[in-house]
């Protein structure tokens, strides 16, 4: 029962939209027709393409030993530390707030303030599975350009955060 109600909850808005389409068909509402056409056009384009993308993400997830990499990351400093946190970040998946617990772990292991914020920047904008998505929908040129421009921007943010926080007793806490 719980599953059914969850399902209804998830697709409630879609159902309302379906009813709206039916009603606008019945009353020959031209606007409804346009909206339906819009929707159908977008939907067709996505639905063929998306399952492939998610298969790629699923494969990525089972083949990349994330836990292993995480173990080796922490207090390396300098360029090597930056490269490693960026690499780790690009292998992850999920929304930004999923990265906060990881920053806590990195902090515990001795990562620098700079690398913590570089990790957040890379996590939010350079995840490899997401880049595949971006290439598919917005093209290779846009994706490459955005990636190349974004990288120095959040590295700079990392440096700025560190230079401000260095002597300010900054710490990352684990919320309970």
């Amino acid at each position: 029962m719980k599953k059914v109600s969850q399902w209804i909850n998830k697709y409630l808005f879609v159902g309302v939209f379906g009813i709206f389409i039916l009603i606008s068909q019945l009353f020959n509402f031209a606007g409804g027709q346009t909206i339906t056409n819009n929707f159908w056009l977008f939907f067709k384009e996505m639905i063929i393409f998306l399952p492939f993308m998610f298969i790629l993400i699923g494969l990525f997830d089972v083949w990349i030993p994330k836990a292993k990499i995480e173990k080796h990351i922490g207090n390396e400093s300098g360029i090597k530390g930056i490269v490693l946190v960026v690499l780790l970040a690009t292998l992850q998946a999920g929304p930004l707030y999923g990265a906060f617990p990881v920053t806590y772990l990195l902090w515990k292991k001795g990562a620098s303030i700079k690398n913590i914020f570089i990790y957040l920047g890379a996590f939010s904008t350079l995840k490899i599975p997401m880049l595949a998505f971006e290439i598919g929908f917005l093209g290779l040129k846009f994706t490459l350009l955005r990636t190349i421009i974004t990288l120095p921007v959040f590295i700079l943010i990392g440096y700025l955060m560190e230079s401000y926080l260095r002597n300010k007793n900054f710490e990352i806490k684990q919320p309970n």
Binding site: L50, P51, F54, I55, L56, G58, L59, F60, D61, V62
Partner: peptide
Amino acid sequence: TFLGIKKGWKMF
């Protein structure tokens, strides 16, 4: 591979 496909499908 099948595990990966299943994971991807679930995410989808």
